[in-house]
């Protein structure tokens, strides 16, 4: 990541304060790699983050302008910002699963509804890991966490045939993909497509947490074990096995098919300003 970090990231934030073995860095690198491969410069991107592991570890890493919203509300802040930034500026958000699919789901649905141009990377460590490890809205059924000592038995957004990406598809998001942290270049390609979509793109990226998830679910902080556990349950779309939880690849691509939020608002405002017509 050296050449990438020199170009795009602040030295003050390297190395990150993540736990040893944390997979978040893989996701973070995939995003920066995608930005690099698209030929974007530091000034082309405003980077927003949420709170929790994903938000805190990525906040202030981007050399350019950055912000961190309150828990779950970064989609609303980014929508307001979108209306005031030039259309060529990209907004990239690195957030966590609790932020996007729990407390912030309403705002995420409404950002999808209006197809606001932003690329959201949901870094999913399968629950609330920065608070010590409680189950969340994508925690696989039966998983042991500090708040599900008997195994997680609540319905959630990835159980019983549910898929949170389906919710967002029907809410109006125009690019949706899913990956696991170990997907490497495949994930980079999806993120690139997401950034190129002028509309709301979301890439759901599961990453391993050995410290709080691995230790409770697998009984060990052994990094390799949790990486294997996730990798075994992930398969490319169309090649799913019986135990596949995360089918990876592009889930839905309607890139540039719907008017973008800020563009449409600006166009309408301009017409009204010119004609003052009711």
């Amino acid at each position: 990541m050296d050449y990438l970090s020199k170009k795009y990231l602040r030295s003050r934030k390297i190395p990150s304060t993540a736990c040893s073995g944390c997979g978040l860095g893989l996701n973070h690198k995939a995003v920066v790699q995608a930005v690099y491969e698209l030929g974007l410069e530091v000034e082309d991107v405003v980077w927003g983050t949420s709170i929790g592991c994903a938000g805190r570890q990525t906040f202030g890493t981007w050399k350019g302008d950055g912000f961190a919203g309150t828990h779950g509300r970064v989609y609303a802040i980014a929508r307001g910002l979108r209306l005031t930034l030039p259309p060529e500026k990209k907004i990239i958000l690195t957030v966590g699963d609790g932020d996007a699919f729990g407390i912030g789901l309403l705002h995420l649905i409404h950002a999808s509804r209006c197809n606001a141009d932003m690329t959201i990377i949901v870094n999913d460590n399968l629950g609330y890991m920065s608070t010590g490890g409680q189950y969340g809205w994508t925690t696989p059924h039966g998983s042991k966490t500090d708040s599900s000592p008997y195994g997680m038995y609540e319905h959630n957004l990835m159980s019983d045939g549910m898929d949170v990406l389906g919710v967002l598809k029907h809410a109006g998001a125009t690019f949706l993909a899913r990956h696991v942290a170990m997907d490497g270049q495949r994930a980079v390609e999806s993120i690139k497509k997401g950034i190129q979509n002028r509309g709301l793109s979301l890439i759901h990226m599961v990453f391993p947490c050995p410290t709080n998830f691995g230790s409770r679910e697998l009984g060990t902080r052994d990094t390799v074990k949790i990486y294997e556990w996730i990798e075994n349950q992930a398969a490319p779309l169309g090649q799913e096995k019986e135990n596949t939880v995360w089918a990876t690849g592009v889930y839905f691509d309607a890139s540039n098919s719907r008017p973008e939020f800020s563009e449409s608002i600006r166009k309408n405002v301009e017409t009204i300003r010119r004609t003052a017509a009711l």
Binding site: R73, I77, L81, L83, L85, H107, E270, A276
Partner: peptide
């Protein structure tokens, strides 16, 4: 009419966050 932007938030919490976003811009 003044070239300004009016939008409705999904709730008041979102509305003020939208204002924050615009103020940041």
């Amino acid at each position: 009419q003044m070239g300004g932007i009016y939008i409705q938030g999904e709730d008041e919490c979102a509305a003020l966050h939208l204002c924050i976003g615009a103020a940041l811009g």
